[in-house]
Amino acid sequence: MLELKGVNSFYGKAHVLNDLNFSVDRGRVVALLGRNGAGKTTTMKSIMQLVRPRTGTVTYQGQDITGWSSHRVARNGLGYVPEERRIFTQLTVAENLEVGRQPPREGCTTWTEDMVFDLFPNLAERRQNYGKALSGGEQQMLTIARTLMGNPAFILLDEPSEGIAPVIVEQMARAILQLKQDGLTVLLSEQNLHFAQAVADGVVIIEHGTQQFVGSLADLQAHPDIRDQHLSI
């Protein structure tokens, strides 16, 4: 469903992503693992075209989307949940959801406000609160909920478990599994291996912007050496 071929990305002159090649099949949850600064966020942004890959292609549903504007990528059903959350703090929860709302997309769930509140009940009572009044966990939920309102077929989750309380992390994992059951494809970046193990089927490990391992979760568990070498925390 999503395929990266020879993707190289730069910040100015700094070479951040070095020849990434991997794909994510429909209906799967793939975890992009790596340490801080490994290039996970840049990978996400390169898929979203918020950072334009200098060489290589990103193919989504058979279409080459490299060089598209990000809003066009989003309109094609790729939802993006950024790491820094970037909710609109001066807008209410309901208004944040409104910004994310897009017309229904064939073959995808058409999300409504009530449906995202079912998924994240904490948000329902916060409906009229401003974004700045939310806790870190609630902000994280709102970011995901906001992206879901665009009825994506594929969702990019950048470090959903970062900086939130363990209880909420669990809730987040349940939500992701729920989304997977609904048929959503997910690429999530993580440093937290336990979280990844709880939700992912496939794994991509990157270090210094170079991919080190691509395989299933079972493959990774069969090779503890790889895990220890690249992910030891």
Binding site: S70, H71, A74, R75, P82
Partner: peptide, 14 residues
């Protein structure tokens, strides 16, 4: 109002 705060994010939301 959303764009006033973070226009890139608004773009990434389609």
């Amino acid at each position: 109002r959303a764009a006033t705060q973070d226009r890139e994010m608004v773009g990434a939301l389609g």
